[in-house]
């Protein structure tokens, strides 16, 4: 009986976003819980694009919802709540990436056998290396980790999530020109890192 009660969603899960926001601003904590339940999956999916470590992902998601709670009074309802939330999520991810920049000079010496095999197959015949493989995904994760926060963010949004320049500008607060310039630099930086990977592996 107790377990059944715990699995039930909080009241208000069916209410629309604007109603929930009004209730939260009126001090209703259960309404905020309903909002978290509604959006936490989408926020987790978005944050996992920016970080590979699950502990880090949980910390970022927690910070995002804390910010939502603090800044909810600034939500004017001109755009859907989800857009406001995603903008906050992307900016929090970017702040987190900047605050936790890892050693970019770390070498690619700890590639696992699957990653090495994928790379060998690509070196032998690029068409033989599939792009639906875990090894390739893991490899691109390693490369992205070595990029600067801005490059990583723009590659993730532009090339992996396939968002438009206009969308990225709205999400990040950068101008469209800045997004284009950063995208150009990010591709160049990624190629440079891949070049280093190839040198370390084959020379």
């Amino acid at each position: 009986m107790l377990a059944t009660r715990q699995l039930q969603p909080p009241p208000g899960v069916e209410a629309d976003d604007e109603d929930l926001v009004v209730r939260i601003l009126g001090g209703d904590e259960r309404a905020f819980e309903a909002l978290v339940v509604r959006y936490q999956g989408r926020v987790f999916a978005a944050v996992r694009r920016h970080s590979r470590l699950e502990d880090e992902v949980e910390d970022i998601v927690q910070e995002i919802f804390l910010k939502v709670h603090q800044k909810l009074s600034t939500f004017r309802g001109e755009a859907p709540f989800q857009h406001w939330l995603m903008r906050l999520a992307v900016r929090t991810c970017y702040d987190f990436l900047r605050a936790h920049q890892r050693n970019k000079e770390s070498p690619f010496t700890d590639l696992n056998p699957e990653e090495m095999e994928w790379l060998d197959r690509f070196a032998a015949a690029p068409e033989m290396a599939g792009d639906h493989e875990d090894a390739a995904r893991s490899l691109v994760g390693r490369v992205l980790e070595q990029l600067s926060p801005a490059s990583r963010l723009v590659i993730t949004l532009l090339e992996i999530e396939e968002r438009s320049v206009k969308e990225i500008a709205a999400l990040t607060g950068w101008s469209e020109t800045a997004v284009k310039v950063r995208a150009f630099r990010a591709r160049r930086e990624m190629k440079k890192r891949l070049g280093r990977l190839v040198v370390e592996r084959y020379l």
Partner: peptide, 24 residues
């Protein structure tokens, strides 16, 4: 190729059990 691989990866929207309680 690598970007395509990352794009092809399924979205993982799983949430740790009881995460909303942690937030609250």
């Amino acid at each position: 190729k690598l970007t395509q691989a990352a794009r092809a990866g399924a979205k993982d929207d799983s949430v740790p059990y009881g995460f909303e309680h942690r937030i609250m």
